[in-house]
Amino acid sequence: MEKSFTNKNDYWVANLKLVASLLLIWFFVSFGCGILFADYLDQFTFFGFKLGFWFAQQGSIYVFVILIFIYINRMKKLDQKFKNLSGKGN
């Protein structure tokens, strides 16, 4: 990933950015595809499901799981960079 942190605040800012972008996707698949645009998406078919119905009853849940695992992996890297920072005695 990008350059290393210069202070502890960088860790927090990077964390907030990551959380904000993941929550944007979270909102989009559930409240967006599953509720607000569900009727529109229903005109498309996906494995025998109307697409909006599929997002509401299946798709959103799969995406939720993926989002948490992306978060776990990215945070692992951020934690490592934070550790390097603390090791340097900043």
Partner: peptide, 10 residues
């Protein structure tokens, strides 16, 4: 379905 799983992301 969405309510009781989406909460885990939060």
């Amino acid at each position: 379905l969405m309510g009781w799983t989406g909460g885990y992301v939060l």
